[in-house]
């Protein structure tokens, strides 16, 4: 296997980079979408069960099926992969962001208003910082999941380590089939662990000491 890796170092490194890049960009966009949705949802209470249902059901859609549905809409390639990963990444973050924002003590919000903070200041200075640990937990779940989904997205010719896995599967029984699939899979796992560690560090840096568990 080392030989296999050694021969393809540059290609594997590039795939790994593309994989991480796809996931991080998708999660970033997903976070923005999820937080905005959560703010809207917590403002209009009747929407809450809708949001919860959507985030629960969305995850039951097989990613293969979703990719199949996306191809006619956005075509084969990076765009489909990006949309699919972003879609799945949004769901856990949305759920956690709703829970996190709901969990903010109503008296703190009233207190903020009572001191003259407007709605936006209350959101950015009180509600989001207090909900942040829960949102970040959602981001971690979401990132782990997205690493796997990004691999599957290689089916529609998305970038990343998934290509190695599919190559391996396609050549099953061939000379480097097992090596290719293994390197792809292990690569995803190792990168996922590394990114999770980074997110943990991000939490240390961004969650106020006053509310850290």
């Amino acid at each position: 296997m080392w030989e296999f890796i050694d021969e393809r170092k540059a290609q594997i490194a590039f795939s790994a980079y593309q994989h991480v890049s796809l996931v991080l960009q998708a999660v970033l966009v997903a976070t923005v979408i999820a937080v905005v949705l959560a703010v809207v949802v917590t403002r209009f209470r009747p929407l809450e069960p809708v949001a919860n249902a959507v985030s629960a059901m969305g995850l039951t859609i097989p990613s293969f099926a979703l990719l199949g549905l996306l191809v006619p809409l956005v075509g084969i390639g990076v765009a489909s992969a990006f949309v699919a990963v972003t879609f799945y990444a949004t769901l856990p973050i949305l759920r956690n962001a709703v829970v996190g924002l709901q969990g903010v003590d109503a008296r703190l919000v009233e207190s903020a208003h009572g001191m003259g903070m407007n709605t936006l200041a209350t959101l950015t200075r009180v509600r989001l910082p207090l909900a942040w640990p829960v949102i970040l937990a959602g981001i971690r779940v979401s990132t782990q999941m997205s690493m796997g989904i990004a691999a599957i997205a290689a089916y529609v010719l998305g970038p990343g380590l998934g290509q190695l896995i599919y190559t391996g599967l396609a050549q099953i029984g061939g000379a480097n089939a097992l090596n290719s699939a293994l390197v792809g899979t292990l690569g995803v796992v190792i990168l996922a662990l590394a990114i999770d560690a980074l997110l943990l560090l991000l939490g240390r840096l961004t969650i106020s000491k006053g509310i850290r568990a």
Binding site: R107, S111, G116, M117, S208
Partner: peptide, 29 residues
């Protein structure tokens, strides 16, 4: 909002913002 910045408001338990330090809490207004 201007009005409320010029009227002190104290509620039960202080309702301090847990993610801010004492100094940051006091300096909100």
């Amino acid at each position: 909002d201007q009005l409320r910045r010029h009227v002190g408001y104290v509620i039960q338990g202080g309702s301090l913002f847990p993610h801010l330090t004492v100094a940051q809490n006091i300096s909100v207004v």
